[in-house]
Design a protein around this nucleic acid. Structure first.
Lengths: 357, 357
DNA sequence: CTGAAAGCGCTTACAG
DNA sequence: CTGAAAGCGCTTACAG
């Protein structure tokens, strides 16, 4: 795979054409699989490509096509940010499969200046589309409301963000997740169900709170809505969170915790206080961390298919790109698909004591 | 930030030049901060740039410069692969700071065909350098031995890989980590120290085993080297791992576990068996997962500065790129730096019962 | 079916 | 200090 010719330069289409005794144009036709070439010519060109080890320059192609085949991915650098592990792998895989590269950008603030700088970079690299992948924290995404998105030369898809007019959003139904988690606890005859939430400025956390509240209203237990404490997502906030919940409601019989990590802190604190889980207190999380099956006791939780979400978001973006260029959707993302994904309940001992998981 | 002119085309350097009444060349000089321009001319051009919202096309620049300002990052798609969370953020941040974009590639096998395909993509996109970021699993990196790396038009840096002639490697000293972990247990008067390792085909796991063995030899306890069981890195393998270690040595008094996740499984199993930790059995992990301070009991572990490793690897790669082009190193990576990073011990209750952590 | 020309948006020598 | 020309490696019309 030596792709430099004897002069040490990159092997170019002109080299292939010269060697095959055809024009660059014909060589180009062969490379791109155009039918308008004699089998004999094609064979000769292909052989020269093989011999020379020719690789078309994506750069040059990008310049003529006016498309970079690159997608911008904007993260919100924050504790527990989304683009880790599973989501990242899902996104890379989907992009790779469609011939796109990913340009990652980490942002810690979304001030006017930062947003302009980010978009500037995206424009300079001429990305074909942008994924706003980082979680929405406080007003981090508010620039979407003001910004003339239609003036951007590329479409944008946001992940797990507050719905906004004119913005494509893909994500999980966190309202439903909170509601179904609470319904699970209700089905176990729990009647004093508290909630340890993520930071209140997180859109995701907010929706889970609202789902929990809706389920309480449904069950005729609106008084429980007072038993809500704000955590940090992290294990550290689980212990203090449980303490405060018990102050609010000393005979709490269940707590829906907005992350498995915080639930771990809750379980440790319960153990320290001598509270029987799930006998006295049922505890459930959300996330399905790989470790949560090994907590003491194993944790009931809700799982989300994060790689799938990343893939759906990417496919959505590619469809919007095609829309702009008036092109048909490529194979693999031919169909519009639902942009609202759902969690799945996983029941373990922390809510059901007699289950052997 | 509307970067299209009235005709809907991208605003180009030619547009700026025309408006300013200068040549493209002069406009280019202003954009690139060349000193060879009158202040008056410069001011006029800068204003036109501002008014038109001109953004130089990185694509065009790349084509003329013959550099893509893009770095390839190759991952080994496998459980617990490296490019998650911290390492990912560190890499993106460092790349961004130096003006490089990252092209990610996930690979699940490293057959001749797959490697050729990967390198083909890297060549097509003309990446300026490659980071082999995924962990070395079994013989996944053996292609480095055969491949004529010098023929590649770009340098390559491998992370946490087996040392090889002619390959730059950046990573942690896992031998020392295993040795120091074991020395910690020895310092607590433990004398029957077992090891639950990662999968044996992992280079990282191997080195930790060797470090553990070295410390045992040092302490005159070579017989302990028989107490070694292979795990999967995951919590699931902790319980069975402890059981088998106890079969090998019923009065085991300490176990060095090669990941915090497996250590969690060990702690759960110890609790189930009624084994007092750390009274009867000291347990320590390695990784410093955020949760490990909240295990029962809190886990002694070793931490590694993963973002720093990613940054060091990236800077190393950029220096090699500069070497090839005969350029001076840019600010921020002017100095060669050690490519062998070390872990740091974090002592918690799972080895020291009376510590209040 | 094949080719000569012009162009994508910039930069690098080379002149003045 | 400034500009006209040629070129980076490909592709898109337009001819034949």
């Amino acid at each position: 795979m030596d792709t430099t010719n004897t002069a040490g330069r990159r092997v170019t289409l002109a080299d292939v054409a010269r060697m095959a005794g055809v024009s660059k144009q014909t060589a180009s036709r062969v490379v791109n699989g155009s039918a308008q070439v004699t089998d004999e010519t094609r064979a000769r060109v292909l052989q020269c490509i093989e011999v020379l080890g020719f690789r078309p320059s994506t750069l040059a192609r990008q310049l003529t096509a006016g498309r970079s085949l690159t997608l911008g991915v904007v993260n919100n650098t924050a504790v527990g940010h989304l683009m880790c592990g599973d989501a990242y792998v899902g996104m890379v895989r989907q992009a790779d499969g469609m011939g796109y590269a990913l340009l990652n950008k980490e942002m810690s603030d979304f001030s006017r200046a930062s947003v302009d700088a980010m978009l500037g970079q995206m424009l300079e690299r001429q990305v074909d589309g942008i994924i706003l992948a980082g979680p929405e924290i406080g007003n981090s995404h508010d620039w979407l409301d003001d910004y003339p998105l239609d003036d951007l030369p590329m479409p944008l898809v946001a992940i797990n963000a507050r719905p906004r007019a004119g913005v494509d959003v893909v994500g999980f139904d966190n309202f439903l997740a909170g509601q179904n988690a609470t319904r699970h606890l209700l089905s176990l005859q729990r009647r004093r169900i508290g909630h340890l939430s993520g930071p209140n400025n997180r859109w995701v956390a907010q929706r889970r709170i609202e789902g929990w509240q809706a389920a309480l209203d449904e069950a005729g237990l609106p008084e429980c809505k007072a038993y809500c404490v704000e955590g940090s997502w992290e294990a550290e906030s689980g212990g203090p969170g449980l303490q405060r919940l018990l102050e609010l409601c000393p005979d709490l019989d269940a707590v829906f915790v907005s992350s498995d990590r915080m639930a771990l802190g809750v379980l440790m604190e319960a153990q320290r206080l001598g509270i029987d889980v799930p006998g006295t207190l049922a505890v459930m999380g959300i996330d399905n961390d790989p470790q949560s099956a090994f907590f003491t006791p194993p944790l009931t939780t809700m799982t989300q298919d994060t790689p799938r979400m990343a893939e759906v978001a990417l496919r959505q973006l590619v469809r919007r790109i095609c829309d702009r260029h008036g092109e048909p959707y490529p194979a693999g993302c031919a169909q519009e698909e639902s942009s609202m994904l759902t969690h799945r309940l996983i029941v373990r001992q922390s809510t059901l004591g007699d289950v052997a998981n």
